[in-house]
Design a protein around this nucleic acid. Structure first.
Length: 514
RNA sequence: GGGAGUGUAGCUCAACGGUUAGAGCCAGCGGCUCAUAACCGCUUGGUUGGGGGUUCGAAUCCCUCCACUCCCA
């Protein structure tokens, strides 16, 4: 029975179009999910949209749409983007889904049954845009007479009946959790932030609203809809079948890791475990807050005009090129920066020149000089064995990197082997051997092709489309592409006969300057 | 305003308080011709954000200032 691996990305708030940060998160999650799947885990990967809340409700009203119409329309765009980027989700959840409403109401009842929900009145200045209440001292009045919050967004006085969650009762348990499971919040820098937040006074949390009706109804009191975060976080267990713990899907809970943006760590590392503790549900094993992608070092914003449409980027650079850049160039967990120049340089150098050209130069020689036959192997020299040993060691290195949620380190290791292979090819000079020792030439080509095979199999996790093309060219059967095929036990079949190879990673050529 | 973090080569990043601060990309020079003007070798490039301190010894520890990011108020 294979071990399970359940991975979630944050669900996106589809108040507008997806941006590059969404694309980045999806791709990183996808690499982890694909890797685990190829490595034999019973894997589940969930992604989706969080469609409720006052902001969606207001945006819809402004556009003359129903909230449902808006959320369906915008969720479709997010889903199209995940498909375009080859994101291999098992479920694209939308919090408007029926089973999700059922799950949210179920967790509400469980928390209520534990005595952690009470009704009170909430008063204060509320910013819809920030979805936050502010103290009057934090607000100010503009010249036009509008009262605004510290972020400069309009606030309105709200005096409403609300249900509260006894978050304050969970302070000690939360601190104990961080203590006992040092890896619960990653990376470490995020953890410090959370611990200091929880060490301060935790206030009880308002978890319902009555001023709008776009959300999950509070069971037994339908004037109220549930606080958007309580409902949103619950998506992770909806996807595991909750509340039906007899469900086949429940084997995936507890989740192995929630991948989220660093800005929402608090919701995932404080509120979510507290809700689960109260409801008597096991906690996820890990929460990991990744960094942001900055455009040439600057934060993306509409006013700076540097917001980039990920659809356009995928079209311009290619899907795998974009994926590669995200995964290799940014240490997951830290902030990263991208620019047109960076993407072009990095993908040309690593994909076209290094990997693509290695495959092309070796496969071409096989095709031209060996009638496409990968040929019987003569005795292996030390140089041959060193290269193969390097390739054989990759899986273990990559496993460690992936478990630490550092896909960039996995790619570093893979590319070190590709460097080695290019060096080897040059030193062995098979084009010389062609004249002097054709058998030796065949062996060199075989060893190189075998290295390409192993790298391509690993790269399926990161560059699925291109890796598949390469494996097709090597005539590797669909069922011989998982990680069991890596290492010394399963070499490239010497009886393989290939067709004329085709470059897999074209160089990026700048369009003519206008 | 408070807290957390970051700042190292033109760019992206490494470096348990311990030889001369490393690697990739870019650039320059040379080589090769199997290959996608690709590949291989060599080279240039640094006051480790500024200033002060602790230490036999600091990129690393402490203080302070500056810039940026995130969280909180």
């Amino acid at each position: 029975m294979a071990s399970t691996y359940y991975l979630t990305s944050a669900i996106s708030y589809p108040n507008g179009a997806p941006h590059i940060g969404h694309a980045y998160e999806f791709v990183c999650c996808d690499a982890l999910a694909r890797f685990k799947r190829l490595d034999g885990y019973d894997t589940r990967f969930q992604i989706g949209t969080d469609v409720h809340g006052q902001k969606m409700w207001q945006t819809a009203r402004d556009l003359g749409l129903s909230p449902r119409e808006l959320s369906d329309k915008n969720s479709d765009v997010f889903q199209e983007m995940t498909d375009l980027l080859n994101v291999s989700y098992d479920r694209f959840i939308r919090t408007s889904d029926e089973d999700h409403h059922a799950a949210s109401q179920a967790i509400w009842r469980a928390i209520e049954a534990n005595g952690d929900i009470y009704k009170d009145v909430y008063s204060g200045w509320y910013s819809v845009r920030d979805e936050a209440y502010y103290d009057e001292s934090e607000t100010s009045v503009t010249e036009e007479g509008t009262r605004i919050g510290p972020q400069g967004t309009p606030v309105e006085w709200v005096d409403e009946e609300s249900y509260f969650f006894r978050l304050s009762a969970y302070q000690d348990q939360l601190l104990a959790l961080y203590e006992e499971q040092p890896d619960y919040i990653g990376p470490a820098s995020r953890k410090n932030e959370i611990v200091s937040f929880v060490k301060g006074d935790l206030n009880d949390l308002s978890i319902s609203r009555t001023t709008f009706d776009w959300g999950v109804k509070v069971p037994g009191d339908e004037k109220h809809v549930m606080y958007v975060w309580l409902d949103a976080l619950t998506n992770y267990i909806t996807g595991a079948g909750y509340p039906d713990t007899q469900s086949d899907l429940w084997r995936f809970w507890p989740c192995d890791v929630h991948i989220i943006g660093k800005d929402i760590t608090r919701f995932h590392a404080v509120y979510w475990p507290a809700f689960l503790m109260s409801a008597g549900i096991e906690l996820p094993k890990r929460v990991f807050g990744h960094g942001f992608l900055l455009n040439s070092g600057q934060k993306m914003s509409k006013s700076l005009g540097n917001v980039v449409d990920p659809f356009d980027m995928a079209k311009l650079y290619g899907v795998d090129q974009l994926r590669y850049f995200f995964l290799r160039e940014v240490r997951f967990g830290s902030d990263g920066s991208y620019s047109h120049e960076d993407i072009v340089n990095q993908t040309n150098a690593s994909l076209a020149n290094n990997f693509g050209n290695l495959a092309q130069r070796s496969l071409s020689m096989i095709f031209k000089n060996c009638d496409g036959a990968v040929a019987p192997v003569a005795e292996l020299t030390d140089a041959d064995q060193r290269l193969l040993a390097d390739a054989d060691a990759l899986l273990d290195t990559c496993r460690v990197a992936i478990d630490r949620i550092l896909p960039n380190e996995a790619l570093d290791a893979i590319w070190a082997v590709l460097d080695h292979a290019n060096r080897y090819f040059d030193e062995q000079a098979p084009w010389e051997l062609k004249k002097t020792d054709p058998d030796r030439m065949r062996t060199v080509l075989y060893v190189t092709a075998e290295t390409v095979r192993q790298v391509a199999i690993l790269c399926q996790a990161f560059l699925p489309e291109s890796a598949a093309k390469l494996l097709d060219q090597l005539k590797i059967a669909e069922e011989a592409r998982d990680f069991v095929q890596l290492g010394a036990r399963n070499r490239l079949d010497p009886a393989t006969v290939i067709d004329k190879p085709q470059g897999v990673f074209p160089r990026f050529i700048e369009p003519e300057a206008a």
